[in-house]
């Protein structure tokens, strides 16, 4: 029995444990998973003095309402999130990118993400969770990972097996930047599409559909015409691949994607833009912009350096 635990009063819409994800399993059909927005995941852990690969609670749109029981512990929330901390007699409006200390009986109420999709809640310590294939990440489609591979549910209790002794309060001034132009590298089936289709892909706006989730982001817009074949022989996928099925509407593969797919690949999102891509909420408009491989590699290096700098300043 643990003396430190969380009770879920309201689970939120899609609340899961996530970490760095799991690799070396695509060949048996298990995707990467892991925190969708990796940078915000890392910052959350750093703010509460955790190891950077610790599990955090990821939520989408509406977050969980949690009651904490146990000895004092720090927590931090990252993303663009509206939340409050309810103590015995007071309610405090919380700020993201700032750690807070809570004690027995305090509640964290994560109301919503603000014009974005994912937010992260890190607690200064370690959750008592099942580690499967080198990761705590939950894949709700295959029921893999901690919590029996299921979303967090109401009235559920989550135990902590350890609380950090370092309880320094930390803060950083990070601001999430939004992007509308997603940089992409030409896909392996780019020539399956008509000249007009290619033009549409790079020049027109697409709207993010409500049917988007951790598996994929569906887009709606002018149809991208295929002139070769609307199917290919099924082959591997990676996150960021943009497939165009027969209906002409692109789908971007996200972290929980099926490992094999049979639709032509028009492009692949550059790694540098992945964290910000997943935060684009349904109804928003996006545009694709072509870049070459070497620029994509350089931009990712810079992005990684920036992330490292951010973390070292916390």
């Amino acid at each position: 029995m643990s003396n430190n635990y969380l009770d879920i009063i309201r689970p939120g819409i899609n609340t899961t444990f996530q970490d760095k994800g799991r690799d070396h399993l695509y060949h048996i059909g298990i995707p990467f998973s892991g925190a969708m927005d990796n940078r915000n995941y890392l910052i959350a852990n750093k703010l509460v003095n955790n190891n950077l690969d610790s599990a955090v609670i990821e939520f989408a749109y509406q977050g969980p309402h949690i009651k904490y029981s146990g000895e004092k512990i720090n927590f931090a929330i990252t993303g663009d999130v509206i939340f409050s901390i309810n103590k015995k007699d007071t309610e405090i409006e919380g700020n993201c990118y700032e750690s807070y200390q809570i004690e027995n009986g305090d509640e964290i109420n994560i109301l919503s993400t603000n014009k974005s999709v994912y937010g992260y809640l890190a607690l200064g310590g370690e959750f008592d969770l099942k580690f499967q294939w080198n990761s705590y990440s939950i894949n709700t489609k295959a029921n893999i990972g901690s919590n029996d591979g299921k979303k967090l549910d109401v009235r559920q209790r989550i135990n902590l097996k350890k609380i950090n002794s370092n309880k320094d309060i930390k803060k950083t001034n990070y601001v999430n930047t939004k992007i509308e132009n997603i940089r992409v590298i030409k896909g392996t089936n780019f020539d399956y599409f008509s000249e007009k289709g290619k033009k549409i892909f790079y020049e027109k706006e697409f709207t993010v559909s409500k049917l988007s989730d951790r598996m994929g982001m569906r887009l709606e817009g002018p149809k991208i015409e295929n002139i070769v074949d609307t199917n290919i022989k099924s082959e591997g996928l990676i996150k960021g691949v943009i497939q165009v099925p027969a209906d002409g509407n692109p789908i971007i593969m996200l972290s929980d994607h099926g490992t094999i797919g049979g639709y032509p690949k028009i492009g692949v999102v550059a790694s540098v833009d992945y964290d910000r891509l997943v935060q684009i909420s349904p109804g928003s408009k996006i545009k694709f912009k072509e870049i070459n491989l070497s620029d994509a590699e350089t931009l990712f290096k810079l992005y990684e350096m920036e992330t490292k700098n951010l973390l070292s300043q916390i």
Binding site: Y26, S234, G236
Partner: peptide
Amino acid sequence: NNLTPSYNKLIISYDL
């Protein structure tokens, strides 16, 4: 990170 063999393709993904 990952190897995905299929009918006639092999995709090798790596950590950039």
